[in-house]
Nucleic acid binder design. Structure first.
Length: 424
RNA sequence: GUGGAUGUAGCUCAGUUGGUUAGAGCACCAGGUUGUGGCCCUGGGGGUCGGGGGUUCGAAUCCCCUCAUUCACCCCA
């Protein structure tokens, strides 16, 4: 294939059975979100660029990794790089601040970031995320955390560990920021190139530098700067999560890439993905709605990387197996076979028939690969109006009346009506 | 954006110091078995050796460029 026709860098085609796993996970996510009282929200795949720009001046995802274009009308548009800003925009634009609070919303949507592809980092990936608006109480933080860990647990991940930190509020964060900058200022000659940039642009991120570990070890801890309200907020949400059976630990070095976070930030990793790669993350963003021309409204939410979760599960999620019924036919019985297959589908069976004009032998061979049973029409070994039914797993076969109801009953007796199984 | 590794059939890979029409296994299709699969046997389709340029009598093999994949950094899901 010519290179200019290939799929764009950093994107992927997802084939079965993985595509079935995606669908399975999506269903699980929707059901779980619904159980927590969240409603699905669909927003456009692109927004006016200002929606994301306003919200992430020093955010790499927004600053350097935007897929932006100008349409013929001269409007600057950006392919959605993350979910929260778009959901907050929809909250404001649809006047949801007038709806009964809190407003609980979730989404399952593609995200686009123009970055260098790497293991489990794509230019288009999918996130399942949820946001709760209108509640400042730490119970909201705890609730979205429980929703997020419930989804990954149900998907088959054992004991997700939430790493949490508080970035403080406008009351207490400035003092900490100042102390941190002062600390690194003294050591500026000895710190790495990246850290010098961080020092100027986003000092909090000095904390997750992997090079200057010793400098980091002695850095001031934000815990010593929290105001009483921020401290109480974190204590309470951790208490609630623990009471609910969640596993949560404070990580003093956890900071996250989006500037809109206030107070709570959290992340869940996975051994298989390595330290640097988060399975999902989230936090609180009390100033975001206001910055998008809405009323001062608190909010908290998370985003789960669907591809990363699937990878961490490594095929443990059950999907539809190869199963169903193949209606094969002797020469001259094409029409009868085709019609019978459709009647069996109306009985709820997964059903195939030959559409390639193949020999009976080739049909049975094909049936063996994709079906559990074969129904043979036109066999001379059966009486008039009868068909041969064959269990392809065992090789047993018998003659029976060619009645769709009877065949469906036979199939369901042998294979069950719910034919899902684990495919590795 | 920076640095390293790798690109031969749908998949996994051979291809010796550059040398005739580029191979294997699996997969696919058809037959061997006159009524029916999974094993075995035979045959078949499928590759401009990622693309472009150069060196050479001759390049999958050597050199340059480019594209893509992959790993690490940055950052994130």
């Amino acid at each position: 294939m010519r290179t200019e026709l290939k799929r764009p860098r950093g994107t992927q085609d997802i084939l079965a059975p993985e595509s079935w796993r995606v669908e399975q996970l999506r269903r699980l996510a929707f059901d779980t979100a619904r159980q927590f009282g969240f409603d699905p929200l669909e927003t456009p795949a692109f927004e006016q660029s200002a929606v994301f720009l306003k919200v992430g001046e020093s955010t790499d995802v927004v600053q350097h990794e935007r897929y932006a274009f100008t349409d013929v009308g001269g409007v600057s548009l950006t392919l959605r790089p993350e979910g929260t800003a778009a959901v907050a925009r929809a909250y404001v634009e649809n006047g949801l601040y007038n709806a009964p609070q809190p407003v609980r919303l979730f989404y399952w949507a593609p995200m686009f970031r123009r970055e260098r592809p790497q293991a489990l980092r794509y230019r288009q990936h999918t996130q399942f995320g949820a946001e709760m608006f209108g509640v400042e109480d730490p119970a909201a933080d705890a609730e979205v955390m429980l929703l997020s860990t419930r989804v990954v647990s149900l998907a088959g991940l054992t004991d997700p560990v939430i790493r949490v930190n508080s970035l403080g509020c406008h009351q207490c964060r400035p003092a900490y920021r100042q102390a941190l900058v002062a600390y690194y200022r003294d050591r500026e000659p000895s710190i790495c190139q990246d850290c010098r940039v961080r020092l100027e642009q986003n000092p909090l991120r000095l904390l997750d530098c992997k090079v200057d570990v010793e400098a980091r070890a002695g850095a001031p801890d934000i815990a010593d700067y929290w105001c009483t309200a921020c401290r109480a907020h974190l204590d309470r949400l951790m208490e609630l999560v623990l009471l609910a059976g969640g596993i949560i630990r404070r990580d003093s070095r956890l900071v996250r890439g989006f500037d809109y976070y206030s107070r709570t930030v959290f992340e869940v990793g996975h051994p298989q993905l390595g330290d640097a790669t988060a399975l999902f993350g989230g936090g609180r963003y009390d100033g975001l709605v206001e910055s998008l021309d809405g009323p001062n409204t608190p909010g908290v939410g998370f985003g789960i990387g669907v591809e990363r979760l699937l990878s961490a599960l490594g095929g443990r999620l059950p999907v539809y197996s190869v199963a169903g019924c193949y209606v094969a036919h002797q020469p001259g019985y094409e029409t009868e076979a085709f019609a019978l297959a459709e009647r069996l589908r109306q009985q709820g069976l997964v059903c195939y028939s030959d559409v390639m004009g193949r020999s009976l032998k080739a049909q049975i061979r094909d049936a063996g690969r994709r079906a559990g049973a074969a129904v043979i029409v036109g066999s001379e070994a059966v009486g008039p109006g009868e068909v041969m039914v064959r269990n392809l797993a065992t090789g047993e076969q018998e003659a029976m009346a060619g009645d769709p109801l009877a065949i469906a009953a036979w199939y369901n007796r042998k294979f069950g009506t719910n034919s899902t199984a684990v495919v590795r």
